[in-house]
Every structure is written in C-alpha cells, then in structure tokens.
Design a protein around this nucleic acid. Structure first.
Lengths: 217, 217
DNA sequence: ATAACAATCTAGTGATTATTAGATTACATG
DNA sequence: CATGTAATCTAATAATCACTAGATTGTTAT
C-alpha cells in the first residue's frame, strides 16, 4: 500500500507552481506593477529596473503558472493579471511578510522617517474627510494607472508633473498622497516635495490593491 | 537619481522569503499538515513520506521565513504554524491553483471518480442537516487532529479504526466524511469502505482550514 | 556513565533557476 | 520590401536548491 503517494506528489507539485511563481523578488515586483494596471513588457522592464530580456523570462514563468495573460496590441505585447485573486495573493503575501519578518518591518520604518509622515486616521475616517473635501487624496502614479482604477475622491497628479502643477492644490488642507502600495516610493517623494513647498501633506501606505482587499474582507 | 532601487530590492527580497517558503511541494505539504495541528518532526516526516533529515531541512526553511515556531517537548521537537495567517495563505494558494491550473483540476477529478462521491449541498445546508442529525459528519483524521479542531457536530473515527468501529454508525442516514482537505485521500478511502459495507456515504472536499477560511470571509 | 532516540548540522552531489548574450519572429512604417 | 522596434527563443554560465550521508547535540531511560 502506497497511500496514494504518487497522486499526492502530483497535487502538491501543481500548487507549488504558484509558489514558485511568487518566490522571486522580481516576479513579485512585476505582479505588484500589474496589480495597478495592464502594461507592456517594455514598461514593466523599465519600472522594475531590469532588462527586457529578463522581464520577458520572468513573465514567461508567470504565464506558465497561469497568473498572467497576454494580448498583442500592435507592436507591443500587453500583460495583465489573469484574475483578481492574483492581486489578493500579492496583498496576502506581502501583508504576512510585514507581520512576520522583522527585517522587513525595519526596512519599512526607514522609508517613513518623518514623525507625521503617515496618515493618522483609519480608512473610514479618511474617506469621510475626503468626501467632505476636508482632505485632498492625491494619486501620484502614472496617469494610466489612475485611469485603470483609483481610490474614491482621488485626484491624479503623476509624481513627475507634480512640481509644475502645485497651483492646482490647496494650501489650507491636508494633502494625502498615495501610490502603488507600501513598497512604492512615489508617495513618499511627493510628500517630501509638497512639504518643502509649504503644503501640509502626509502619505498613505496603502495602494489600490491593499485598499480593496481591506474593504472586501 | 537611483529612484530608490536598492531600497526596493531589499523590500521585495524580504517578501520573496515567504514566496520561497511556499515554492516547494514538500514544504506545502508540511504546511498543510501543520494546519491540522502541531506535530513532531517524526510525525511530519512519516505523514509526508520523507526522511526525517529532509523534513528537518524543509522545516528549517519554514522557520527561516518565520512561518513556523518550535517547542521542545521531552525528546521531541514540536512544530506549529506561527500564525493563523499561514493557514489562510495555504488555503489561498491552493484555491488559486485549483482555479487556474487545468492539470490540477484534472488530477482532482481523478480522485473523486464515483458519480455521487462529493457532498451535494452547500456549507450552510450541510450544517443545518448536521445540527438536526439528518446526516453524520465524520472526521476520519487522526484523533489528535480532531482534538485540536474539528467541524461543528463532527464525530471522530480515524480512518485506521473505521473498519472495527462500523457499529457506531447509523445505516439510515448519509455519512459525510472529511479529512485534511482536498489533497488528503483519507475521506475518499473512508467513503469507499463505508459504501462497500452498505452505508450511504459521500465525501466533503473541505478540511477544517478551508471551512474556516470560507466562513470568515 | 551508557545506550537509545529525536532531531539538527555539515558537506557534497545532482538538479533547477536566474541571468546574460546572440539569433529569431512579428509587426508597423516609410 | 527594407528598416526599426518589441518581444521571444535558445544556449550558456553562475548561483541556488533539494536531497543524501555522516557526524553531532540534546534528552530520556537504564
């Protein structure tokens, strides 16, 4: 009697295909980028700071695990996540990592150095204030990502346009900047810039994926 | 300007520690076993059909990723999951795998060969029937696992005692057997045995982890 | 103490995996 | 149809990982 060892091995091996897909830092970064919006290989490789060849190889692995799908659009090939469940997996994994790994906690603290850097209130309070216009929620990601999905009441000013568009922002209210999530540094940079220009600003750790995961559970 | 590449690399590398931990079939099997109850290395290695040396090495990786914790109890070292979130991660990953990977779907179909093998009704209906005593929910896992946690209204008869304890079961009601989850073959074997002995029986794919994840979200 | 047991640690081997370079495909444009 | 661009495929190398064997560490029982 073999207790079905061969069957079992086959089953766990299949599940491990998903595990292998999320076992590489670069692939995780690609998944996070694709959690914002669909993107071309060229865009992905630039935003993850890797060569297109390497990006292509990693995306091949992700497609092998059926986590992403592709479409050709003219000269480009557009990648997108195969299901919303992949976003949730990314949020689950990085949240678990943040809860368990001291090294990650310390690295994240180094990002939010300033004392009042992070948004003080909880999600509902923040939304209430945003609805009433008591704070400005500012999405500093590239415009396409804002277009694909953004937080309720959020305005879009991509980080690289921010310096020239400061006039659009009020000086009498708190400006809450957010970007892709806790590992994205754009919101942090935006807050720094805004503060140097005399604005009242703080940054929100959550991106759209984290926000949606939080309200849907 | 480096856009904080070094910082980012560090962050994703940390998250990938969790990913690496779940990238091996054997480690996933160990996590599933530990999702049932705490266990010694000896037990784990026997139940996962690997040598104690290999089990020890895999558990070392899991401890490195802070997914498990240990306690010495006499001659033995007892391993347990470091947090409930690890169970949820296991459920999320294998559910995603089942939704995305055709190969896994086919392998699972081969397990549930018989036409009326699987329990027909949804979770609430099943519980209602169990509460009223209209079906018997049977936990065929080892007694310690039942003791650690089991489905509401479930009775415990471990698979290897089942043949000698058939008299305890009613012949006029459906007996719904469950075990560790969809990759555990004990419930399937129990149903086979019960049917051969003239009982009306079906098997529930869910184990305790899947059941709890389903009701808590 | 000594023996036996449970588990880990260290070192070594073969198998995967990450990464890079070079060649190739597929499409769009002039 | 020639050219440039976007991306993939193939092959090669270096790094990492799974697994095994042998030696070692705690712990309990005699």
């Amino acid at each position: 009697m073999d207790d079905g060892r061969k069957t079992k091995d086959l089953l766990y091996e299949q599940v491990a295909r998903i595990g292998k897909a999320v076992s590489s830092p670069k692939r995780l970064e690609l998944i996070e980028l694709l959690s914002q919006s669909e993107k071309t290989v060229d865009t992905l490789s630039r935003e993850a700071s890797i060569s297109m060849k390497l990006a292509s190889a990693h995306l091949r692995e992700l497609r092998n695990a059926q986590l992403v799908e592709t479409d050709r659009r003219g000269k480009n090939i557009v990648y997108r996540l195969a299901s919303k469940a992949v976003v949730d997996l990314w949020v689950d994994i990085h949240t678990l990592a943040e809860n368990r790994l001291v090294e990650l906690q310390m690295a994240l603290q180094r990002i939010a150095t300033e004392p009042n850097d992070l948004v003080p209130s909880d999600r509902e309070t923040l939304m209430k204030m945003a609805r009433r216009g008591e704070v400005v929620v500012l999405d500093v990601r590239p415009a396409e990502e804002y277009l694909a999905k953004h937080l309720p009441f959020a305005r879009s000013i991509p980080l690289d346009e921010l310096r020239h568009r400061l006039a659009e922002l009020p000086r009498d209210r708190l400006i809450v900047a957010y970007c892709r999530g806790p590992y994205c540094l754009m919101a942090k940079d935006a807050v720094e810039l805004l503060r140097n220009e005399g604005f009242d600003s703080a940054h929100l750790r959550d991106g759209v994926p984290e926000w949606e995961a939080a309200i849907s559970r």
